[in-house]
Design a binder for these strands. Structure first.
Length: 725
DNA sequence: ATAAAACGATTTTTT
DNA sequence: ATCGTTTTAT
């Protein structure tokens, strides 16, 4: 083990990063410059060459996925199977872990729970209702950014906002929000980090323990850190303990400014910390010269940036194609035909091919077209697994069981499945809760005890609900997590509710998601923070919000394993690479997005384009259209300004428009016709015959008898229905 | 209390 | 177009 050469196959700059001794480092690592490899080697170097204890190393990543990858690769490099005590994780999981230990000093309840942005949104809606403020004026988006801003500025209300009525109300909403979190024992994602920051600030003795321990701090994706995270790093760093920080980032790939990330933190670091050495990793091992030249030229239109220029030893490669499509259907078909031509005929794995887009809505036509051409694909993103309604409902039951005072969850499921507790009953429960300063649960108990406020029927419904929750809670004792979840889903009536209408495609998926959730429970418990193997429900419920996984991948046309065209937003593609990349919708208003038509945001859009382009290894195709349907309207497209910012000698224009006009009239505009008795084929259910047709606004609901004799209603626009010619 | 109809907004998304 | 929310009708 001691013989591994940690500098093997590295260029000079990379070697410098791995072996630089006892200095604060700022590593500006361009796309495809071997950043992760270098980070891993550096960690191994610290342990083997500088005799640092693995315990002294804190490595912070932007996502759990990245953390897992880092852990895995370090384990392989260090070639040991035992736990190595290196702390690798996100800011949030680090904060969570420490706050569970120091909850008392942090002023948190022992069983505090975490709320995600979805819960946060719901909570704000409820507060607006309670305060009778119109959420059109006080938009949820503004309120969330107000809350996050305040937390980023350590609750200092005086700094940013003027004293007008609007801001006074915002401030009131904020107080309500914080108060509500306190009562129901929950904290949001930002508060996690802020709480730990405060804990350290107010308890120097605790801070000292961790300052002494973490003498090597490495932060990946530094351009994505926000204010409070930066403040936190500064606090944890103590030069008197010889702490050394390595920050790795790329200001050109900063695409999360809208979420509060501050590229300026790179400059702050240079100013605030002593003895910082900057190392540029500019040699790219991923792309051809043409692709890199295009990326460099494009990003040079951003004026304020750390000047950095990617270069490569590889040859020019193919020219970048720019295809001018008639509309989004033509756009998708061009890609489908290309894939058929180059990937199918030559038998190249489809995983090497990615289709990237600015907005998720753009994936729909792609999806239809891939199905039409029988090309297997995977879509990343869209609605997150844990934000699906059926999962959220299950979570709400589980949370209410573990904390009766969780008002958010209480309100969410009080009438799911329907049990005759409507908004009037809820209003009364709320009224009583406000009158006596009770949570919704306590208020319900009060109402039941005093038999006041509600009539007999409603009283009875409420009693049934309260008893159900009590029964569910009793039932979990001594059982394993997946059993708890399964029984909660079944006993709560959720399973029955979704299963009842299982004939509909939607509910069929929901039941499947619930099954997946039950299975996932065990998997999640295995990913624990360090050695903490406590398998209790409370820990699990917080963890799944922190340790989100890639369950939200949608696979279709699954002919063979691991062979799908990859489809995702450009944001989601960050950190990945593909031989062949298509970027679609290169049009003003779409990319750059029309909401970003101001200088600051245009720069971020440009960085996004830069990220997209640099995903490609061998061949890149950019597509824009003449016309496009968007939100039900046809618009004339204007080519994206980014297309004009590419060097002429790297690109090749393709324009088949003339031939396409005839083709379109005959094919794309023709709508499918269905009739009773027609034989069809469905991608999941197989062969079937149409029994009944119900016409809706623009699509049709088909009742189909499948070969297994089951009868289902299927929406015709679900496309999995194929007409057999 | 619940179902149907009208209305309206509409980027990116991880923790 | 589509999804979520609010209003209106049963």
């Amino acid at each position: 083990m001691k013989n591994i050469n940690l500098l093997k196959n590295l260029n000079d700059k990379q070697k410098e990063v791995v072996s630089e001794s006892r200095k604060n480092l700022l590593i500006l690592a361009g796309a495809g410059s071997g950043k992760t490899l270098v980070l891993i080697r550096r960690i191994a170097w610290l342990i083997h060459k500088e005799n640092c204890s693995p315990k002294s190393i804190l490595a912070v990543t932007f996502t759990n996925k990245a953390a897992l990858e880092l852990k895995k690769r370090i384990k392989i490099l260090l070639n040991n199977n035992q736990k190595n005590n290196i702390w690798i994780g996100t800011f949030h999981s680090f904060a969570y872990y420490l706050l569970r230990i120091h909850y008392l000093e942090a002023g948190l309840p022992k069983n505090f729970q975490i709320i995600d942005s979805y819960d946060q949104k719901n909570l704000i809606k409820r507060i607006l209702k309670k305060m009778s403020l119109k959420d059109k004026i006080y938009s949820i988006k503004n309120i969330i950014s107000y809350i996050n801003n305040l937390k980023n500025n350590l609750y200092n209300k005086n700094i940013i906002y003027k004293n007008n009525l609007y801001n006074i109300n915002l401030s009131k909403i904020y107080d309500e929000y914080q108060n509500f979190c306190k009562i129901t024992e929950v904290i949001d994602f930002n508060e996690l980090i802020l709480c730990l920051y405060k804990l350290f600030l107010n308890n120097p003795n605790i801070l000292k323990i961790y300052q002494k321990r973490f003498k090597n701090i490495l932060i990946d994706e530094f351009q994505d850190t926000n204010d409070i995270q930066y403040k936190f790093i500064s606090l944890l760093y103590n030069k008197h303990y010889d702490t050394k920080i390595v920050l790795v980032g790329d200001d050109d790939q900063s695409i999360y400014g809208w979420r509060g990330a501050k590229i300026e933190n790179i400059n702050h670091f240079l100013k605030d910390f002593d003895n910082v050495k900057i190392i540029l990793l500019e040699q790219n091992y991923r792309s051809t010269s043409n692709i890199l030249n295009a990326a460099n030229k494009l990003i040079s239109y951003n004026e304020i940036r750390q000047k950095k220029k990617l270069w490569t030893n590889s040859d020019n490669g193919k020219l970048i194609s720019i295809y001018y499509a008639l509309n989004e259907f033509d756009e998708a078909e061009y890609i489908a035909k290309y894939i058929k031509k180059y990937f199918f005929k030559k038998n190249i794995k489809l995983n090497n091919c990615a289709i990237l887009y600015r907005n998720n809505v753009q994936s729909r036509v792609l999806e239809e077209t891939m199905l039409k051409f029988s090309i297997p694909y995977q879509i990343y993103g869209g609605i997150h697994f844990f934000q699906r309604n059926e999962i959220k409902n299950t979570l709400a039951y589980l949370r209410l069981i573990s904390n009766f005072n969780d008002d958010n969850s209480f309100e969410k499921i009080i009438n799911i499945p329907k049990r005759g507790i409507g908004c009037n009953t809820l209003k009364i429960i709320k009224f009583v809760s406000e009158k006596f300063f009770l949570t919704l649960w306590q208020s319900s108990i009060y109402i039941l005890k005093n038999k006041k406020y509600l009539n007999k029927i409603n009283l009875n419904s409420l009693k049934k609900f309260i008893n159900l929750i009590k029964k569910l809670k009793k039932n979990i004792i001594g059982k394993s997590l997946s059993i708890i979840i399964e029984e909660t889903i079944k006993n709560s009536g959720l399973w029955h509710m979704y299963n009842q209408n299982c004939l509909f495609e939607n509910n069929f998926n929901k039941i499947n998601n619930l099954k997946e959730f039950i299975n996932a429970a065990n998997h999640f418990m295995n990913i624990s923070f360090n050695d903490n193997k406590k398998n209790n429900l409370i820990d699990f419920l917080s963890k799944i919000l922190l340790l989100t996984d890639d369950i939200n991948v949608k696979k279709k046309n699954n002919n063979c394993d691991y062979n799908f065209v990859q489809m995702m937003t450009i944001h989601a593609s960050k950190g990945l690479e593909f031989s062949k990349v298509f970027i679609i919708g290169m049009e003003e208003g779409i990319f750059p997005n029309k909401i970003s038509f101001n200088e600051k945001n245009i720069n971020e859009e440009r960085r996004l384009a830069y990220v997209g382009i640099t995903r490609a290894k061998k061949k890149l195709t950019l597509i824009y259209t003449k016309k496009r349907y968007l939100y039900g309207k046809e618009i004339n497209s204007i080519p994206s300004r980014f297309l004009n910012e590419l060097p002429e000698n790297c690109i090749k224009k393709i324009n088949y428009l003339k031939d396409k006009n005839i083709y379109l009239k005959n094919d794309v505009l023709k709508k499918k016709k269905y009739f009773i008795g027609q034989n069809i084929y469905h991608k999941i259910f197989g062969k079937g015959i149409i029994l009944n047709i119900e016409t809706l606004k623009d699509n049709k609901k088909l009742q189909i008898k499948f070969s297994n004799k089951k009868i289902r209603w299927i929406m015709s626009n679900y496309i999995q229905t194929y007409v057999i010619k």
